[in-house]
Design a binder for these strands. Sequence first.
DNA 1: CGCTCACTTGAAGCAAATCAATTAGTGTGG
DNA 2: CCACACTAATTGATTTGCTTCAAGTGAGCG
Lengths: 259, 259
Amino acid sequence: MTAPQSSLKLSGLKTACKSCSLHNLCLPLGMEIADIDRLDEIIKRRKPLQKGEYLFHSGDDFHAIYAVRSGTIKTYIESENGDEQITGVYLPGELLGLDAIHDEQHPCSAIALETTSLCEMPFHTLEDLSDKVPELRHQLFRIMSKELASDQSLLMLMAQKNAEERLATFLVNMSSRLNTRGFSATEFNLSMSRKDLGNYLGLTIETISRTFSRFQKEGLLTAQRKYIQILKLDELKELAGISPHCTSSASEWEPMAQK
Amino acid sequence: MTAPQSSLKLSGLKTACKSCSLHNLCLPLGMEIADIDRLDEIIKRRKPLQKGEYLFHSGDDFHAIYAVRSGTIKTYIESENGDEQITGVYLPGELLGLDAIHDEQHPCSAIALETTSLCEMPFHTLEDLSDKVPELRHQLFRIMSKELASDQSLLMLMAQKNAEERLATFLVNMSSRLNTRGFSATEFNLSMSRKDLGNYLGLTIETISRTFSRFQKEGLLTAQRKYIQILKLDELKELAGISPHCTSSASEWEPMAQK
DNA sequence: CGCTCACTTGAAGCAAATCAATTAGTGTGG
DNA sequence: CCACACTAATTGATTTGCTTCAAGTGAGCG
């Protein structure tokens, strides 16, 4: 991350939803002030997680959903034969844990990729409140629905795209999401390692590395380890299979999965 | 489909939720009789769709979610460059359309793979009712959450499994889902073509065909076009990466995406 | 300073895609 | 009812993009 990171951190543990810089990305969208205050009361602000610390493990009982306030969380599932698959990468303002509602335990593990602070919302309390506040209930439906729709795009990526298209899609998506959060669209630090990237995109670490090299040779970007600088965002978008005319500042555009 | 298909069809358009043979798969789970009656009132039973008829198209306004009563629906998204990706195959008792809530239009198209009858539930009415019936609201959350969790499994399949494992996983999943709906676990007609199968599993039609041939040569199953007979379900499960001890009749087991 | 770990680069191997040719169904109209 | 076209599925031969194996390179750190 680059720009407003530090200011987010400074806001510390006392920020209320009302004044949170992420309020338009998170739950309160469209809620009355009084309702936001009620939401505010049930939200716990936890001690930040350090890089490598777990938020929850696969199989843990489900109590709460979480909103990222700053930092990055990755979630992954493990198959019986032990291999892992990253299922989501969550940036500030994004909600995780929604996949645990149905059988009341987490199907995936969640780990911090860097120092990360979170809001914790006990789910039964949130459900109770959503009884009284239809906007909140509707917003929860919307968020889950959005995650369903964006999962479908990730599926398409896995089923039909080649290595270049996958990496381009990922980078364009990252750029867009970071941009809507006030960071630069063309210059950022990936919190994921090449290994994570490969796992997430269904490729090996060697293929990721080679694809980065090819992109650099073609002048599309520079990549020094985690520091990425996008030089030709439009061409990257084209590669990703997206018309380059929808600018990244159009905040409603989020083609790929964030989960 | 094989077994109770015709009896489902006979029940025609007048079946109420209370007496519906799918009630334990569909919404009313855990609801009071009186509440089910109210749900019953808002549900429209449509004229069955013929094979190849569309339920909705990508981009259509979202009004309702649908439950399959008999038959099969497939959903797919289309990318800008025109290629399609099947995102879901829905059997009786399964709900579709939930991915359209967030921006109030359908991100995918839905088409009948065979003659299919459906229940239509206007979403705003369903939301209103879910205000009065917390069990219904909770059930909606659960269903969406389950779809999220099962999407993750499909992602894992795409990212990490080879052709044999993919087809085995698909067949075992189908077998299990059909079985919980009262059909045979080892003998069924696929409503999907090889082309659909290939698209859904991220493989070409030739690879699907060859993999079926290999399975037949190894005596795992027989496949004459759409008619599938599974001879060694346990070995198929093993191939799919699932311990063969969880029997298909254990109704809670649904490892793969149904959406 | 040297160790480790993350990443890069090259060469070889392989699984699935592509290209191509048959065969088996399905439907249509005479 | 059968010839015809048309589509779906199978099978084989070849190509290819990614993986695997292997050997560096360079940044970070005790």
